[in-house]
Amino acid sequence: MRSKITGLFLFQVFLCLVTITLVLIPLFWTDIPWPTIARDHMENFGMAASGARNMVSAIYLGYRVFDTLGETIVLLVAVSGTIGIIAHGGDVLAKGFGDPSRNESLYQEKTTLVKKQRTALLEVVTGKLGPVVLVFGFYVMLFGHLSPGGGFQGGVVVASGIVFLALGGRADGSTRLTEAGVLAKLESISFLLLILASLSGVVFGGGFFANTLAQAGMPEVGFIVLLNAIIGLKVGAGIGFMCIAMLGRAE
């Protein structure tokens, strides 16, 4: 009986391979060149239309900015959903990041575990490197229209800087950037600012996400820089919140 089942299985595998071959070989052998119409349009008119030198930023925050708004909402939902799902399941989040109504003594034992695993090297290196990484993150975020980078990339680098500060800083350190309340407020305020920036075009007679700064007489590229800064703050606060909640934090 087993040999019969094995034979049937091999026959099914053979059928799958034949189907895959018949479908995929024409795809692999096609020699149709990639269309150049979008590239030519961007090369000729992209800089005049958006003011940014980096064409990827121009598409990301100019031509396809609705896509970016949707992606930001997806990221917000994913972070809050992840934290919510985990916080109901147990005591593995850092103190203060989970469900505040739960018993705090459950968190205590995990944070002491984290404390025991830290070494002097980790503390010194991450504590000294954190501010430098933060400055680099803001550079990547604010110069995204001229060089490779942009809001999301800079935001992720800022989040790494926040995680470094959380791992290396002392409990009575000079920064409050690694606390749960501060990060959550920063994310909410950034998202509110993003919605306000998108709606500001409607107030001044343009459409949704119209370039209000250009109508006010400022350079065309200002709106992209503004959106980059807002998205970077929001992404940095959100991902930093999630990573600190999972890694634990210096107590």
Binding site: E43, M55, A58, Y60, L75, I85, G89
Partner: peptide
């Protein structure tokens, strides 16, 4: 220059990918 449109699309795809990973790991937990 190379085509910037697929690069902008894939920027979004990477972000959605990490969101999917985080949610899937939370559910697995």
């Amino acid at each position: 220059i190379v085509d910037p449109v697929p690069q902008a699309l894939m920027l979004t795809a990477i972000v959605i990918g990490v969101c999917i990973t985080a949610l899937a790991l939370a559910l697995a937990f």
